[in-house]
């Protein structure tokens, strides 16, 4: 028989770690935002997101897409480590032992709370060896110049590292490349 007392061994049940009401904290006196773990957060206003596109284009021209992707990769690499630590601490279990479904649900919720829009994983192409990540309401696409070309390079970079690291370290099921669908501004 199942004992509820055993289920509640530590008297706590992990729920939505990334609920914005508890995840994001502000200290107005100090001009600081932080996460529930005490890590510093920043809110990028839309004027800064726009400026990243125009500023980089001014300085690096055509290469700006590559630059953004590379910045996204660095961003993703560091963010992934943090995400992993946060989840491992909260669920009190190493990521390698965490159910994939819980990992993905946390990632989706994290995406929402950070205001990056919504994301979902589409497995329709898994027989061809890649995974499609769809994002909606991307603030990056929303603030980028409306050129009709893909613009979510930052997200692509983040996802490439993010899902790549998860695959490499924890989940042999992601056997081949992780690919992203980058929605264009016109897709929205």
């Amino acid at each position: 028989m199942i004992s509820v007392a055993d289920l509640l061994m530590s008297d706590r049940l992990p729920a939505n770690y990334y609920a914005h009401e508890v995840y994001v904290r502000g200290d107005l006196e100090m001009g600081l935002l932080e996460s529930r773990r005490g890590d510093r957060l920043l809110a990028l206003p839309q004027t800064l997101v726009q400026a990243m596109y125009t500023g980089l284009t001014k300085e690096t021209g055509q290469a700006s897409k590559l630059v953004l992707f590379n910045c996204g990769r660095w961003w993703g690499k560091n963010f992934y480590n943090r995400f992993q630590e946060e989840l491992a601490d909260y669920y009190d279990t190493p990521l390698s032992e965490m159910a994939m479904a819980d990992f993905l649900q946390s990632l989706k919720q994290c995406w929402i709370t950070y205001g990056w829009g919504k994301m979902d994983l589409d497995q329709s192409y898994h027989h061809r060896g890649f995974l499609v990540v769809q994002t909606w309401n991307s603030p990056f696409a929303n603030q980028a110049p409306q050129t009709g070309l893909p613009v979510c390079f930052l997200e692509a970079g983040i996802l490439a590292v993010f899902l790549g690291s998860y695959r490499a370290k924890n989940c042999t099921a992601f056997r081949r490349v992780v690919s992203q669908q980058m929605p264009t501004a016109t897709d929205l």
């Binding site: 994001v24 935002l33 996460s35 890590d39 510093r40 957060l41 920043l42 809110a43 990028l44 206003p45 839309q46 997101v49 961003w75 560091n78 963010f79 943090r82 709370t113 950070y114 205001g115 990056w116 603030p139 990056f140 929303n142 603030q143």
Partner: peptide, 8 residues
Amino acid sequence: QNVLTTED
């Protein structure tokens, strides 16, 4: 519109 990020 705002986007939250960490120091990363």
